[in-house]
Design a binder for these strands. Structure first.
Length: 113
DNA sequence: AACATGACGGTAG
DNA sequence: TCTACCGCCATGT
């Protein structure tokens, strides 16, 4: 039973959303970090897919705090790309001259405990 | 079932 | 530092 998965009954996307919901305002996390935290570093791409399919719910999932490992806000027009940057800025996140986020400064990871 | 695409990551040039 | 290519996994056609 549960041959392919016994770590949790929750689907991968659900686990992604659960983790993203824990990211505090003014902080960000990367796709790769999420994948790694869920146990499979190579599923980073799947994390991206999951975020693209982020369901509208309450409280809303802070998908705008998820960026790629370079500190760039992914996605083009049509995926609320500009809106995400705006939200980040509203939370106090400053962008570098290249338009990227300083991960060393804003990257958030869940407490070990 | 096969092919092409993608909110990614890492390495090589 | 920037661009290009490859690898991974799931989706949509």
């Amino acid at each position: 039973v549960r041959s392919t998965e016994d770590k949790s009954t929750a689907s991968f996307p659900s686990q992604v959303y659960a983790l993203v919901r824990r990211v505090p305002p003014g902080r960000v996390i990367t796709y790769g970090a999420i994948a790694r935290l869920l146990g499979d570093p190579r599923k980073a791409r799947e994390v991206g897919w999951a975020m693209a399919a982020t369901p509208a719910e309450t409280p809303p999932i802070p998908a705008h705090r998820v960026i790629n490992y370079r500190g760039d806000v992914s996605g083009g027009p049509g995926t609320e790309h500009a809106a995400r940057r705006k939200k980040l800025a509203a939370e106090g996140v400053t962008f570098l001259d290249d338009g990227r986020v300083d991960l060393e400064r804003y990257l958030w990871l869940p407490p070990l405990a």
